[in-house]
Design a protein around this nucleic acid. Structure first.
Lengths: 229, 229, 229, 229
DNA sequence: CATGAATGAGGGTTCATTCAT
DNA sequence: TATGAATGAACCCTCATTCAT
């Protein structure tokens, strides 16, 4: 009697165990290298049961991705007050993002890396999640730009659409990178708050300057001169 | 002689063809899902020859990663003049980075995504590449900070080590994200120069403010107030 | 109570439903490809109940075969009056056979095809059914031969045992083939009566000639000459 | 060293061995119950090699069916002289049919039973083979009818189209049944010539009577009276 | 140098069957 | 009586890898 597996659990519980196990294994190995045997063993269930409940490896992977994506998005959304000022919302969102990814490193690994390795329709789910976040950031930036333009001398239209989207992608990428760094193997990992502060400092301050028209100009690169519109 | 495949090529050429093919297939499918058959076919060589030259699938993958990493690092390095001012060096490096990733999307896909999916020792190679780039950026930031501190009122040491590393990670992540965006399926992809400008604007200007002591403060988040040291 | 399945039916009824469902599935897929899940679903019962009543897939298959064989044999037997003349009995039997197989195509499919696919002991059951029918036909032929011999000039014993058995097999095979044809997908399927007439015409008339000694002779095959004993 | 498998054979030979083995296993077990492992073992090759050459279980089955169907049809065709009289052609065809099925019982088992168990597109192949044979028989009957009508008093049109087709199906079914009987387990199996004679006697003589207008009539079934047109 | 021939090992999936309730 | 929960075993198929030529 090597393993007195707990038997006869209600379906919901078993299913959760299976998905938990799957997220772990997918995070560790990626989609193709993950084996259903390993997932089954980690879940404490037999393979046929997994297939009965989750139907196939692809379905299981999709379920994992959707669950983790929803959890992450939910964590960020519920941390943001819709009527707070833009910077506050960014700040709260970033903190929630870093806190959640730090608390669920496996889920984050699946979303940030594993899901993109396996084409359609998984990369699309992740791409949609990312796009959704980018949209939010785009609105944040636009709002910040309006504030700046409204509050200060509004002489020029400082940001076109593509530039804003680019900025949003940069910000999201920076956040992803920092999340990966914070989850890294290094002993001295920063807290979610510290991470969020670092990013907030460089991004928000840079953003304010940007929307107020200050640019870096390649031509004037003798000593890092900044042109002020 | 049923197949008029070109025979008897010098080893070097054959090897290059094989690695080229492997990079493509690994980029498309990821490590585990890539099949040696497919690589062999794309390379126009027989499988035993691949094994003779490249020894194993893992070895082949490692060779791909190292080659692409070296190419990317070389492109960035050779674009930077060592004695140029910090901002110029960052600017040139970013442009080279975006140009290279746009010109070699498959190589970049292998480095940015595929290699991280397959644990030890491949993720280490990629992590080392990343660390090397982060180091460069760290030095850039430190230098910029010294300039700022030296050139302006030097009252405080505004950045500790971990913060600098975090900034560097954020910058690198932003660059990676932008590279992915620029390679994306959207029709209106920006040029390498545009991409670099976007990033440079937000990063460098933010950086300058940062090293001169201006911070975003959570407490004052009524209207995005920025405290000036 | 999520499923309003009719519960608590008397065992006999349930069992009949199960066997009905099994016959359909076996007819459609054959023994091996049929799945107990499908049978259970079609029967509107749970799998454990099926196992409780019918014990195993093989038992269930055997039960199906025996039920269908008995039904077919019963239909044929009850259509034949024991004291009618030989040709009348054959005629009535054939009509009943074609009527029954047309009315129960699934049962006929199981008997004629599916059962022979799965060795011992199922092919034996079917072989026994067939043997039983062949026996009947053999007696019919012998009786017809006696009539002919008795009624006409009885110069020779024209049919040996093996030839009679062969004739019976031919007749049964022809009937089976016609049953399959009549059940086929062609739009203009003949009625049982027509089918029986066709067969009766060629068989009985041929038989009469045969027992009266007329043969086809290979040697005289210039124009299909028939030798008359 | 349990089995010093002969290695390194040319592909053609191996492929033939595989198909031979597959025909045997399919004949014994049917499509679904046959296992590729068993086929591989019987073929003296490993499973991957089978898949390399024959692609899939379905493909392998199709290959078997087509090969056996072509062999049977070829045997029958090459035994029939196109310009011989109708009865001679039927006689020669039947003899060849019985000889071939007796010599290749496994192929015949696959064609006559196994192939019909597995839906589209295999049953279609077999159905086409059968239809082809039925067509030939239909033409034979029509020709015989013309001969008879031309040679004798041509007062009536004795056979309509559907009746002819029905007769052909009956004849083919009888032949199939006799082939099965001749391959049966009984010790005293008849030779192909005997079998052909039995069928020829009942069929051809019956046919001649039929086309000359003699019918069995249900109404007159007192003593097997035959009406002569 | 180059390859057609060949396989051990393992992966995803399904099935008949049985407990525990 | 009736069933949701659970599984050992087997099946089809593929892959990285290696001889023998």
């Amino acid at each position: 009697m090597p393993k007195p597996r707990v038997r006869r659990m209600p379906r919901e519980v078993r299913e959760r165990q299976m998905i938990d196990a799957a997220v772990r294994v997918f995070a560790r190995c990626g989609y193709s290298a993950a084996s259903m045997d390993e997932i089954a063993e980690l879940a404490g269930a037999s393979k046929p049961l997994i297939y009965l409940y989750l139907h196939s490896k692809e379905d299981l992977f999709g379920t994992c991705i959707r669950r983790e994506a929803a959890a992450l998005l939910g964590a960020v959304r519920s941390a943001v007050e819709p009527h707070a000022p833009a910077d506050r919302r960014l700040w709260d969102g970033l903190r929630a993002f870093f806190a959640h990814t730090a608390a669920h490193p496996e889920g984050w690994a699946v979303l940030s890396c594993r899901a993109r390795t396996h084409g359609e329709p998984f990369d699309r789910v992740v791409a949609e999640l990312r796009e959704e976040i980018v949209e939010v950031v785009v609105r944040l930036i636009e709002e910040a730009a309006e504030d700046a333009v409204g509050g200060a001398a509004a002489g020029r239209a400082p940001l076109n659409g593509r530039e804003v989207t680019g900025l949003a992608h940069a910000l999201v990428g920076a956040a992803e990178s920092l999340a990966g760094w914070a989850n890294g193997p290094a002993g001295a990992v920063p807290s979610a708050k510290e991470t969020a502060e670092t990013l907030m400092n460089v991004a928000w301050v840079g953003l304010e300057n940007l929307v107020s028209g200050r640019r870096w100009e390649a031509a004037a690169s003798k000593a890092g001169v900044v042109s002020s519109g």
